[in-house]
Structures are given as structure tokens and as C-alpha cells.
Computed example of a mutant assay.
Amino acid sequence: MNNSFLARIAIAAALAAGLQAPATAQGIGIFNNIIRQQQLPSAPASLGNLLAPAAGNRGAAGGELIQLLMQSVDHVDEAHEIEIGRQLAAVLLGSKPLHPDMALQRYVNRLGRWISLQSARPQLPWTFGVLNDPGVNAFAAPGGYVFVTKGLVDRVDEAELAGILAHEITHVTDKHHLQALRTKARAGLATQAIGSQLNSNLGGAVSAQLLALGKDLYSSGLDQGDEFAADRNGVTLAARAGFDPYGLPSVLQQLRSAAPDNPLFSLSLRTHPAPQLRLDQLELAMGNRLDAYAGKPAVPLSQRLVGR
């Protein structure tokens, strides 16, 4: 990694610490207006609303979804993709509940929805949430479900959070989870799950097959190439939405300095490529091509939450 790329990341890190730097591109005025006018949908008020089946897709059986996955991701239409995502979201929420701060949930949902509108699939029923977990991590599920942990939110500014959300949104738009599920299903993990006794406080709301695949997916992580692609396309998406593209690299700098045995970072470090490797790949992809969109003043999340 060369010094110029480190310097550009340092600008983002300095801004996150509350220092000012000259703006070199337009700010995020459109998003500011959206936040003030509250034109984007707010977060779900309850777990039940978040996991409500998509219209016209009620009753999709886990076996049917698994069969579609094992054929080809191309056989999974959008309605079934959303249903798979709903069931995988149940896996995540069965492990960690939503954080009770509804002002925070509304803000993250609006921020995520704004970024998702700039993505390749704005029509998905995007839903964002904050998990009540002190660890530092983020997750996504097919069909437009994206989660960040409270521990992550507490350590980032708005541009950094936007970079993380854009990374996760890219996983969804590029169907990375569906591809990973297909690989695992064809490897026989779904068949092995049939008849097994799996503990879940959601009972029969999630099929045993998808539950097993989902748990394995979130504990092992996505393919390394998918993570690099989500980094590359995520910084571009964040810039397109009006945010500093160096927000995501700044978060990776934080991960790089984390102790490997720190339990707050352990899952994120275990399920993703090494932060230094991700930074190296981003340097090759970004160069100085996005510098015109960098250098925006940092916006602390606490400022966004005032009066929410």
C-alpha cells in the first residue's frame, strides 16, 4: 500500500475524529433534505413487521426454496429471493435482537434506503436494522435485508457507516448470498440437516434446511472474491449516494488495528479477508479516481439522532 492511499484514508480517519478538511466535491445536501423531511420509510416497529412475508409469497416452503437454489440462482425469482432473505433474517434476529432505540433504527433505515436507491436494484423492499450486539460486524440477506451491530455503529461516523451499508447492499444486488447458499446446498449440507434437532427460539418459522445453511453461511462467511467485489463496488455506490468514498477504507483501518483475540472483532475478522488485504485490493481498484468525492466534513451519528 503506497503512502498516497494511506494519506487519503487518513483524511477520512481525521474527519471521523471531528477534524475539518476542505471539501473537494458536493456535500450530501439531498440526503440531508431527505433526513429532515423524513421522506424515506422508517424502520419496522417490531420484529413481526420485519419478518412479515412478502406480498404474494406467503407459505413458500423451505424445501421448495432449497430445490430452486440447487438448480441455479437464475431459477430464483425476486419473490423467492425475498422469502429466502426473510428466513435468513430470522436466523440473524434469532441470535441477536434489534436494538430498542427506535430513533437509531429509523435513522439507519433511512440512510440505508437512500443508498439503496442509488444501487442496481432500487426496487427491492430494502429493510435495515441495528442488532443489539456490542460486537463490530454487519450482515446482509437476499432480497434487501441489511443489519449492522450497535458495536459497529458506536465506532463510526456517517460516511463510514454509509460505506459499510453500501458494501452490504452490493452483496445483495450481486446475489452473493444466493450463490453461497447454492454452493452449500449442492455440497449436501441441506440434506444433512433434514431430521436433525436444531435449536431455535423461532420454532417452525424457519425451515430446518435453510436454518442450517444460514447458520453455516454466517459463521463461515462469503467467498473472498465476493468480499473484494463488495468493497470495490461499495465505495463507488457510497460516492454515488453523496458520501466520502474513503469511509469504508477508514473502517478497514480500524479493523486492521484490532487485536485478533478481541472478542468484539473476532467474528468479523474470521469471516472476512484480512483488513490489510482488503485495503490493498481497494488501493488497486480506487487509485485516485474517487478523490474528487473525498474530503467531506464528518457528520457524527449523534448529530443525526438529535430530535429523532
Rank of each mutant, 00 (worst) to 15 (best):
N2F: 11
N3R: 11
S4K: 08
I11C: 09
A16V: 00
L19F: 13
A21S: 11
A25W: 12
G27L: 13
I34E: 09
L40K: 02
A43N: 04
A43T: 09
A43E: 02
A45Y: 12
A61R: 13
M70V: 00
M70L: 00
S72K: 00
E83A: 15
A89V: 08
L93A: 04
P97Y: 11
D101M: 05
A103I: 04
S116P: 03
P122F: 09
F128K: 11
N132Q: 09
D133A: 07
P134S: 15
A140M: 06
G144V: 04
Y145W: 10
K150C: 01
G151L: 08
G151R: 07
I164T: 15
I164Y: 12
E168Q: 10
I169L: 01
H176K: 12
H177A: 13
A180I: 12
R182Q: 15
K184T: 11
A185W: 12
A187F: 11
Q192W: 07
S200N: 14
S200R: 05
S200C: 07
L213T: 12
L217M: 10
S219E: 11
G221A: 00
L222N: 07
D223Q: 14
Q224G: 08
G225R: 08
A230R: 01
G234A: 00
V235P: 03
A238M: 06
R240V: 06
D244M: 02
S250F: 01
V251S: 13
R256V: 06
P260S: 06
D261A: 13
S266W: 07
S266N: 14
S266G: 09
L267T: 14
L269W: 02
T271A: 03
P273W: 08
Q276N: 10
L279D: 15
N288K: 06
L290N: 00
Y293K: 08
L301F: 05
V306F: 01
